[in-house]
Nucleic acid binder design. Structure first.
Lengths: 255, 255
DNA sequence: CCAATAGTGTCTGTGAGACAGTATGCT
DNA sequence: AGCATACTGTCTCACAGACACTATTGG
C-alpha cells in the first residue's frame, strides 16, 4: 500500500497527465537470448510492460523516453513508435486489474484516473542488458529481463503489444540498428549471428552469414578472444558506427 | 455559418467523443497519377486531410473506417494505421485555425472542444477514384482528389502526416495490396507499372517489370485493349486475388 | 511503307545458399 | 594427435538490370 504522502504526490502528478492516453514500451535486450523488460505487478500474479502517461505539455515520444529512463536509467537508448492500440475494451471484459483495485481504491481521483478508457501507443526500444538498471514503478514489485520465449501472463493486451512489436521489427530488420544497440562494444561473429537468428526466428548458415556481413564492411576486426575452450579462438568485432548508420538508413541487406 | 439546429446536433454528437484524440486519413487514389483526398476548409485558404473523432465506445480503427465512409461512401476500402502524431503543439505556435474560429466561436462547448491538445493517429487508405463519392464535412466546402505533386497549403502538421504515410507505404510496398485496391478491375501492364513508379518515385525498365510481374503469376491475361492509337494493342490484365493475397501476405518481391 | 507502343529474349554481373576445405586453440 | 570451433573458398542456381529484337496497330 502506498503511504499517504506517496498518494498525495501521485495524485498531484496525475493532475498533469493527458487523460485517456498512455504509452507502453517493449524494451528488448540480448544476452544470447532475446529478453524483454517486464514489471511484476503488486497484488497480482500478472506482469506488465513498462509504460506511463503523457504530461500535458510533453511530446508523446518524450513520454516514452521518460518512462524508459525511469525504468532502466538509460537515456541514449534506441526508441521508436510502432502502433497505437485503440480497442474499446483493451482490458478484456472479465479481466480485473487487481493491482489498481488494491492500490488506489481509497483515492477517488486516482481510482477514476485508472478506470478511464485508455488508448495506448506502443514503442519498442533496444538496450544493453548490462548497462540497464531495472527499477520497478509504484504499481510493481519487480522489474526484470524476461526470456521472450517464456513470457508469463500479462495484463490487458500487453501480449498483443509485444507480438506486434516483433512483427514490426522483423519487417524492418534492415533498417534497425539493433546490432549497435543490443550487443556490447566488442562481440564475436557468432554472437551477432545468434542475434540475427533470434530476431528472424530461424537458423542461418554460418559461412554465408560471415561472408555477407563482412562484405558490407561495417565491422572492425580486433584481437582474438581466448576463451580457454579447446578450439580456434574467434575474432572480436566492433561497429564502424558511421558506416553502420549509413547502411541502416538505406536498408542493410539482411532480408 | 452553421444553423442553430446544426450546432445543437454537432454539440450533442461531440459529447460522445473521446477527448484529446483524433484520426486523420491519407486516402490515396490513382488515375495515372497518385492523388490524395483533401478537404478545402471554409473561411480559410488551407486544406486538410479527412479525419474525425473517436466515439467513446468505438475502436480507433472503426473511427477511421467511419470517417472514410462519410467522406467517400466506400466501405470496403483498404485501411491501415501508420503512426500517431504526438507533438505538444501540432498546430505550430503562430498558426490560427480560421475555420474553427469563425464556425464555432459562438458555442462555448465546441470552442473548448477544438481548442484542446489533440494527439492524432494517421491511417492511410487505398481507393478507386471513380468508385468514391467525395463529400465535404461540416468544416469544409470541397472534397477533392488532389495530385500528390501539387498539394496546396495544409493545416497543422497534415503535410508531415502525408509524408510519413508515403514513407511507410514505400517501405511496405511488398506487403500492401495497392494493385488490387487502386486499379480498376482490368488494367494494362503499363498502368500497373506507372502505379509502381508513382509509389516508388523512380522509373522502372519496361521489359524487366513485365517479366518479373508475370513470373509471380498473380495476373490473368484477357483480351487486348484496342485504343485506336497507331500502335500494338496492350493486353488487359486482372488480379488472381487469392494468389495476390497470398503474395502480399508473405511479401511480394518488388524491392 | 512508317511510327509508336507492346511483348519477349539474351547477356552479364551479383549474390544467396549448400557445402567442402583449411586454420587454430586447447587437452 | 585429436577435438571443437572459427574462418575461407568454391560451386550452382536464380534473378536483377541493360538492352536488343520481334509483334502489332493504325496512319
Amino acid at each position: 500500500m502506498l503511504t499517504k504522502k506517496q498518494f498525495a504526490a501521485l495524485e498531484k502528478e496525475s493532475r498533469n497527465w493527458l487523460p485517456g492516453h498512455s504509452i507502453d514500451c517493449v524494451v528488448l535486450g540480448f544476452d544470447g537470448k532475446l529478453r524483454v523488460l517486464l514489471l511484476k505487478r503488486v497484488h497480482s500474479d500478472k506482469w506488465a510492460l513498462p509504460g506511463g502517461f503523457i504530461n500535458k505539455n510533453e511530446h508523446l515520444d518524450d513520454a516514452a523516453r521518460r518512462a524508459l529512463k525511469d525504468r532502466t536509467g538509460l537515456k541514449t537508448i534506441y526508441l521508436s513508435q510502432f502502433h497505437t492500440f485503440g480497442a474499446f475494451e483493451r482490458r478484456g471484459k472479465t479481466e480485473v486489474d487487481k493491482t489498481i483495485q488494491q492500490l488506489v481504491s481509497l483515492n477517488q481521483h486516482l481510482a477514476n484516473w485508472f478506470s478511464q478508457r485508455f488508448l495506448t501507443t506502443g514503442y519498442f526500444a533496444f538496450a544493453e542488458i548490462n548497462k540497464a538498471h531495472p527499477e520497478p514503478d509504484f504499481l510493481s514489485e519487480k522489474c526484470e529481463w524476461v526470456d521472450l520465449e517464456k513470457i508469463p501472463e500479462l495484463i490487458f493486451d500487453h501480449r498483443d503489444i509485444i507480438q506486434k512489436s516483433l512483427d514490426y521489427i522483423r519487417l524492418r530488420i534492415n533498417f534497425l540498428p539493433f546490432g549497435k544497440t543490443l550487443l556490447g562494444k566488442k562481440f564475436t561473429m557468432s554472437e551477432l549471428q545468434k542475434l540475427y537468428e533470434s530476431i528472424l526466428n530461424k537458423e542461418l548458415d554460418r559461412g554465408n552469414f560471415q561472408k555477407k556481413i563482412l562484405k558490407m564492411n561495417f565491422l572492425y576486426r580486433h584481437d582474438k578472444l581466448l576463451t580457454g575452450a579447446a578450439n580456434k579462438a574467434p575474432y572480436l568485432y566492433s561497429f564502424n558506427k558511421k558506416r553502420y548508420d549509413e547502411l541502416t538508413k538505406e536498408g542493410i541487406g539482411y532480408i
